[in-house]
Design a binder for these strands. Structure first.
Lengths: 172, 172
DNA sequence: GGAAAGGTGTCTAATAATTAGACAATCTGC
DNA sequence: GCAGATTGTCTAATTATTAGACACCTTTCC
C-alpha cells in the first residue's frame, strides 16, 4: 500500500472510476474537480502523489492550465511526484510536462493495469533517498566538472573555502 | 561563445553541415559517426554539450541505440547536457529520452535558427549552480517531507544526528 | 622570453559545527 | 491507559570550517 493519492480531473465520472481503481493500492484516495483546491488539500494532509488531468476547461486543449497547476504543485511540493493525464498524444505537451518535473505521463483512454503499474513504478523509484554526504559528493563532483577542474572557482560557487573543498574531497 | 560541443550522427553529411552551423556559437565543434568514440572523446577533453542522433543503424528506428548512448553519457558525465536529434515525431521516444536526462529534443529536419536557440537555452540554464548550503537545504526539506515530518527518521536517512538536523533547520 | 595574474598545495590558530549520550515531556498505536 | 517512539533541550568531547599566509606551479599576454 502506497499512502495517499490526490486525483484532479474536471470530469466527476472519471474521479469516481479512479476512486474505485486506486483503492486497491492506495490507503486513501482524494479527488477534486477544482484545481484551486490542490494546495489547500496538500497543506491539510501529507499526500504522496498527484494524478493531474491536463485539460480542465472544456474546449481548451492546449494543456496550458494543466502545465500551470503542475508548476504550482512542483513549486510548493517538489518532493511529491506528479503524474499527468491527457487525452491527446501531443509530443510538445509531453516534453513540457516532463521538463516541468512531471514524474510520468498517461494518455486517455487508459488501461487500468498499465496505469496502476506506472503509479507503482513512480512511487517505488521515488523512495530512493540519499544521505547528505552522498548528495554533497555528487554535487561537488558535478560542480568541479563544470568548472573544468578549477578548484578555486568550484569552491567559490559552492560557497565554501578552498581548504574545506580539499577536506571534503579527501574524505569522499 | 559556448565552449565545446560534440555532435554524434551516423550521417557524415549532417556532421559537415553541423560543423559549419555550430562554428558560430561554439569555440570548438567535435563530430563523430561512431558512438563508441563518445566516452573516449569526453575523457580526452572537457565537453560542454552533446548533440546526439537517436537513430544509428539504418533501418532500426526504435531509438533504442540512441537511448543506450544517452544513458551511457548521463552515467559518466551527469553534468553535461545532452540534446537529442530524431527524425521521427515519437512521443514515446521523447518521453523516454527526457526521463533519461536529456536536456532537450530536436526533430529532423531542423530549422537552423531554432536549433541554435535551443542549444543556447540549454547551456544558459545549465549554468545555474547551487551552493552546498542551498543544495543541502533542498534535500533536507525534501527528505523531511517524505518522512511526513518525522525528524528522527529523516535524520537517520540523511546520515546525520537529530541534533545536527535541528541545527541545520534553525540556520536554513 | 619574461612579467603579471591566477591556481595549487600546505600550514596555523581561532571559531563554529557535529557528535554521543542523557533527560523529562509529549505524542501514537493498539 | 499503557508501551514505545518522538521531541525538545542540555553537556562535554571531538571534529570541521574558517581567514589568512606562504612558496611553488601554470597560463596569459605583451
Amino acid at each position: 500500500m502506497y499512502g495517499t493519492i490526490l486525483v484532479v480531473d474536471d470530469n466527476a465520472a472519471i474521479l469516481t472510476a479512479m476512486k474505485y481503481l486506486m483503492a486497491d493500492i492506495f490507503e486513501e484516495v482524494l479527488t477534486t474537480t477544482q484545481p484551486d483546491d490542490i494546495l489547500k488539500l496538500m497543506a491539510q494532509q501529507s499526500i504522496d502523489m498527484v494524478l493531474l488531468d491536463m485539460n480542465f476547461s472544456l474546449g481548451v486543449n492546449s494543456g496550458q492550465e494543466g502545465l500551470f497547476w503542475l508548476r504550482v504543485i512542483r513549486k510548493h511540493h517538489p518532493d511529491v511526484p506528479v503524474v499527468l493525464l491527457t487525452a491527446y498524444v501531443d509530443i510538445s505537451l509531453a516534453v513540457k510536462g516532463l521538463k516541468n518535473g512531471a514524474a510520468d505521463f498517461i494518455t486517455k483512454p487508459w488501461d487500468n493495469d498499465d496505469l496502476l503499474r506506472k503509479l507503482k513504478d513512480v512511487l517505488d523509484s521515488a523512495d530512493e533517498i540519499a544521505t547528505l554526504d552522498e548528495m554533497e559528493k555528487d554535487h561537488i563532483r558535478r560542480t568541479i566538472d563544470r568548472c573544468h577542474g578549477n578548484l578555486t572557482q568550484a569552491a567559490e560557487l559552492l560557497g565554501i573555502t578552498r581548504q574545506t573543498l580539499y577536506n571534503k574531497m579527501k574524505r569522499l
